[in-house]
């Protein structure tokens, strides 16, 4: 194998490893996906180098395929990041740890052992209890609501946080 190919292989390995470290350490969602793209471009360098080494264009076709898959992945990742950002206004990955499996003694309540955990689920507030409020206030709020134009209320955040 000639030295130019070996040099390219060396740089491809470097980019792959740096992208791997970046994906594992960074906590910003967007930077994690950029590290993933860096790993893909490190692999593409290897494909191009081997294509030139073996004297055909098959490896270059695989680089085109990698580009296609990377752009699909970027589009889907951006849509996911935007919809996650709408729910909790942060880009931190650590704010989504409730999605993972509950492990005992890992900072989260142990649902298998703790009897205190068995309580009723908390529902989002809908309507109100008429016994808890005096009647005049109820009439007043109803009037003021009738006078007000109907507005669209977005409860996306209050349901889920």
């Amino acid at each position: 194998m000639n030295e130019l190919t070996l040099q390219a292989l060396s740089f491809g390995a470097l980019l792959f490893v740096l992208g791997l470290i970046g994906f594992l350490t960074r906590r910003n969602l967007i930077l994690m996906f950029l590290s993933l793209e860096l790993m893909l471009s490190g692999a593409s360098i290897n494909f191009a180098a081997f294509a030139w080494h073996s004297g055909n264009v098959q490896g270059q076709f695989f680089v085109i395929l990698i580009l296609t898959v990377a752009s699909c992945e970027a589009a889907l990742a951006l849509a996911l990041i935007v919809s996650l950002f709408r729910l909790k206004t942060t880009l931190d990955v650590k704010s989504w740890t409730t999605l993972r499996e509950v492990t005992p003694n890992a900072g989260s309540p142990d649902i298998l052992v703790d009897p205190e955990f068995e309580k009723f689920p908390e529902l989002s507030p809908a309507g109100r209890d008429p016994m808890l409020r005096p009647a005049p206030m109820l009439v007043e709020t109803t009037k003021s609501i009738e006078a007000r134009p109907v507005r669209h209320v977005d409860h996306t955040n209050s349901h889920l946080t």
């Binding site: 791997l20 470290i21 960074r26 942060t90």
Partner: peptide, 24 residues
């Protein structure tokens, strides 16, 4: 923000990555 400054277990990630780099 906090997520840009505090990182997830850099020791483990760098150790694993450098082991992979050493092998390649």
């Amino acid at each position: 923000q906090i997520q840009d400054v505090r990182l997830t277990s850099p020791i483990l990630a760098i150790f694993g990555g450098m082991l992979l780099l050493l092998m390649i």
